[in-house]
Design a protein around this nucleic acid. Structure first.
Length: 501
RNA sequence: GGUCCAGUAACUCAGCGGUAGAGUAUCUGCCUUUUAAGCAGAGAGUCGUUGGUUCGAUUCCAACCUGGAUCACCA
């Protein structure tokens, strides 16, 4: 870790003193620019021919001093351009100011555009002014174009610093800035995709007196004025369903959920989730919507059909496959299991070292076998359908065989990308399911749901049949930006404090 | 939580029982078309932390901290 006042910082402080002594305000209130650098980089010959004076503002990221002539690189959010600062053009006094500038300073440069002898398109300064003095040097930025590709030398690569001080990562690694630009594009495209289909975006409480809608342990917080504990939501599901009871037909929420669980390359304690509900739709409708949305994002928005992810080439342009869980068990393991095969399922689990949790029935066992032995082998986009009802407490049972729920998960590269079902709207049945969950909880399953009476009451007023869908946005962004770690696609991933607080 | 790997200058890294090294960055000098500018010189480090072994530890040992990988757990 950098010390608080090492030689570099001392030197910058001294320069600051010199600036103040010279009557220069190092943090002026006003700044001015006529153009973004991007504008100037378009139609270079015209800018040069016009000889028009422009003002650019940005961060000085590199300097090459050469006595009474200096070069520098000026960067703003839109691009980067070389500046040419000659003493005879800016004057002695202004040149002295420039000599007190360092890489990392924000400056404003007024000048005209030209090509240097080496052919580099540059801004020839008539005047430099300081916008904000840097007091802590940036790691050096050294780069060179080799075969048309920008090679950066000694880039900041320490992942710990990159995550803890994301601003440095963004500043020093432009390709990492692109990840978040892409993330923003994806999220904005999801909204326009749904808005076009007449979904209404809503916001439901993050602070909830009871949590539900998923199996997970919650974060608990306290409200002082009410003197009650509140939970940070683990899902938006139960509130969104109340809104369907209230008469909305197509709604979605895009926001953070919080789960108090382990962290790894695909789990961050707070993560972004899309949930949507559509009245009078069903599982087939959700499947179409999921597939269209992913293809829209991949192909229409990002213009790419094959994504390198976890060492696989994931093709999002082909039709997604479909397979029922029961058939997967048969195909992958040669195992035929149905509702009456409890003993057979137990035997199989024991043989393959799959722990059997207390209270597990045949459905739970089937799900565990699938999860432990098959899930990670499903690489290309596949809708896995027909989950056991036992592990789907909020999904409607299939009419032809109520052992199974009308549900799918979309699997890609062994990860879940979407989860959808025909939503259970029978209030009595829902109560029975939640009570069964509560019973599991009593047996020690800390992730099982609790009974939410207010939600059950809402259901009793009547909720239409509908399809519901959840998509983990961070994981989707991982796929669409070809990153294998969730920390790479979250600006400020959760980290342990370096020192005890 | 288990196992393995890593932590040395601002950045990227080498070193490894005997006074701490390189490149870049920084500072000083020279330099008006450079661009990983150049040339000459200089400064810069609690070698993650705390203990132990040793005449002597950045190096060996132990514990701990932080990060990564992996397994377990988990949407």
């Amino acid at each position: 870790m950098p010390s608080r006042d090492n030689q570099f910082i001392q030197l910058r402080r001294q320069k600051l003193e010199k600036l103040l002594a010279a009557g220069i305000e190092p943090y002026p209130i006003k700044s001015f620019r006529t153009n973004k650098i991007e504008d100037i980089l378009k139609g270079k010959d015209d800018w040069v021919a016009s000889n028009q004076e422009v003002s650019l503002a940005g961060r000085l990221v590199a300097m090459r001093r050469q006595g009474k002539l200096s070069f520098g690189d000026l960067e703003d959010a839109s691009g980067k351009i070389q500046i040419y600062v000659a003493q005879n053009l800016v004057g002695e006094e202004n040149y002295e100011l420039f000599k007190l500038c360092d890489p990392g300073d924000f400056i404003q440069v007024k000048g005209t555009l030209f090509f240097t002898q080496a052919g580099e398109y540059s801004l020839r300064a008539n005047q430099i002014s300081l916008l904000a003095k840097n007091l802590r040097p940036l790691p050096p930025i050294k780069e060179k174009v080799i075969d048309g590709k920008l090679v950066r030398y000694s880039a900041l690569s320490d992942v710990e610093i990159r995550y803890r001080k994301r601003y440095l990562d963004l500043l020093l690694n432009p390709s990492h800035r692109d990840i978040f630009i892409r993330r923003a594009k994806i999220i904005s495209a999801i909204r326009s995709f749904l808005d076009e289909r007449e979904f209404i975006e809503v916001e439901t409480p993050i602070l909830q007196p009871l949590y539900g809608g998923a199996n997970a342990r919650p974060f608990i917080t306290h409200h002082n004025a009410l003197d009650i504990d509140l939970y940070l939501r683990i899902a938006t599901e139960l509130y969104l369903k109340r809104l369907i009871v209230g008469g909305f037909e197509k709604i979605y929420e895009l926001g953070k959920d919080f789960r108090n669980e382990g962290m790894d390359r695909i789990h961050n304690p707070e993560f972004t989730m899309l949930e949507l509900y559509e009245a009078y739709s069903d599982l087939a409708g959700m499947m179409d919507l999921t597939e269209s949305l992913l293809k829209y994002l991949a192909i229409n928005v990002l213009h790419q059909s094959i994504y390198k992810f976890r060492g696989y080439n994931i093709d999002l342009s082909e039709p997604f496959q479909k397979a029922s869980m029961q058939n997967l068990l048969k195909d992958y393991l040669g195992l035929e299991l149905s509702e009456d095969d409890y003993d057979k399922a137990v035997e199989f689990c024991q043989k393959h070292n799959i722990d059997i949790p207390p209270g597990a029935g045949t459905g739970k066992l089937i799900y565990l076998i699938y999860e432990n032995m098959i899930e990670e082998q499903i690489i290309q986009p596949t809708f896995v359908t027909d989950f056991p009802k036992e592990v789907s407490p909020l999904a409607k049972a299939k009419p032809d065989n109520p052992f199974w729920a009308d549900r799918f998960e979309l699997l890609i590269a062994g990860y879940e990308f979407a989860n959808a079902f025909s939503e259970l709207n029978d209030p009595l049945e829902q109560r029975a399911r939640l009570e069964a969950q509560a019973a599991l909880r009593a047996l020690g399953d800390e992730e099982a749901s609790v009974v939410d009476e207010d939600f059950l009451e809402a259901l009793e007023y009547g909720m239409p049949p509908m399809g519901g869908l959840g998509i983990g946005i961070d994981r989707l962004v991982m796929l669409l930006t070809e990153n294998d770690s969730i920390k790479e696609v979250i600006l400020f991933p959760q980290m342990k404090p370096e020192q005890p607080l």
